[in-house]
């Protein structure tokens, strides 16, 4: 279901494009629809166009073409209304460091038109939920990176946004803080009735948090579905082999014998073969019969990195 009861998607993007001065095409006409309450991920390496997309949706980047709506409000034609139903946590720290945590939250509440009494109650509520209650009277400049990021998420939630944008929310954080923050974000969906659009280049983040993922590369969406569906497309198990000789010949042999499908591929001497129910031994038999020498053998469950590799020919972990 991509629409709310009143028939309005939380986010609706049609042919959205951005070409920066100088001709750099950051986003090349993307389309997607996000349902109310959904957690939607934009997964891709740095420079893929994720932040530019978030910028256009939050009206801080002017689209070169196409359209986008937040809760039915066109970001180009009705920017104030679109901004009124959304909040964003930016990739970099975006706080007034000399103000206290509470002052930062209060300013957000006022700017988003929250009544004073409601704002105070809401600040107590979200700061409690995000674990920053004890920090509120301290200047933000004294916060650690993780504390600051929690405060920024709390601030974004103060206005009860229909759409919450999280632009690389865990980038730059140490692994422990990062996993704590993932717990926080994971808990938001049960607690807040908000739609989350998340950008990330971390595969585990996308798999863990998102109902659906759009894999974005060089400004284009190359795959979009739920993580489970994307992974299912690669079968339950992946066989990885290193072969001597022509890898493409090995792939052709496997396909001919029905062991490897169209999604099997080779990069250099390494073969990646989604098995789709076949046993690894069947693949090895085929290669042995074809007199292709195999030097390394490994099986594992597919990841989104395999999906990315399958669609783009490169590993996300290598380019992120």
């Amino acid at each position: 279901m991509t629409h709310s009861r009143d028939g309005v998607p939380a986010v609706e993007v049609n042919g959205l494009r951005k070409t920066y001065p100088g001709g750099v095409e950051a986003v090349k006409g993307i389309d997607f629809v996000v349902a109310p309450g959904e957690v939607f991920g934009l997964l891709g390496p740095n420079g893929a166009g994720k932040s530019t997309t978030i910028g256009m949706l939050t009206t801080t980047v002017i689209p070169s073409g196409g359209s986008a709506r937040l809760a039915g409000f066109d970001v180009a034609e009705q920017p104030l209304l679109a901004r009124g139903v959304s909040s964003v946590v930016f990739q970099d720290a975006v706080v007034d460091s000399s103000l206290t945590g509470r002052e930062n939250l209060e300013l957000h509440a006022r700017l988003w038109g929250i009544a004073a009494a409601d704002g105070r109650a809401r600040i107590d509520d979200v700061s409690d939920a995000l674990g920053v209650s004890e920090l509120l009277e301290r200047p933000v400049g004294s916060f650690s990176g993780g504390q600051r990021r929690r405060l920024e998420i709390a601030r974004a939630l103060v206005s009860r946004p229909r759409v919450l944008f999280l632009d690389e929310p865990t980038v730059g954080l140490d692994p422990r803080i990062r996993h704590e923050l993932l717990d926080v974000v994971a808990n938001l969906r049960g607690r807040e009735q908000t739609t989350i659009v998340l950008t990330t280049h971390y595969l585990d983040e996308a798999e863990r948090l998102c109902d659906r993922v759009a894999i974005i590369r060089l400004g284009e969406i190359v795959a979009m579905d739920s993580p489970r569906a994307l992974l299912a497309g690669l079968g339950n198990e992946i066989l990885e082999l290193r072969v001597s000789g022509e890898a493409e010949h090995a792939i052709a042999e496997l396909r001919e014998r029905g062991v490897g499908g169209e999604d099997a591929f080779a990069i250099g001497a390494r073969l990646t073969i989604p098995l789709h129910g076949c046993a690894p031994s069947e693949a090895l038999s085929v290669l042995e019969e074809a007199r292709i020498r195999v030097s390394e053998i490994a099986t594992r469950t597919p990841t989104l990195d395999d999906v990315y590799l399958n669609r783009t020919g490169e590993r996300l972990a290598a380019v992120a």
Partner: peptide
């Protein structure tokens, strides 16, 4: 590439958006 979502999250919408009064925005 619009697709059909598989959302399972609650569909209750947040409260209606509020309009920020210009004077209030300016003073804030």
């Amino acid at each position: 590439m619009a697709t059909t979502a598989t959302a399972t999250a609650p569909l209750t919408l947040a409260p209606p958006e509020t309009r920020v009064r210009p004077a209030s925005a300016l003073l804030t």
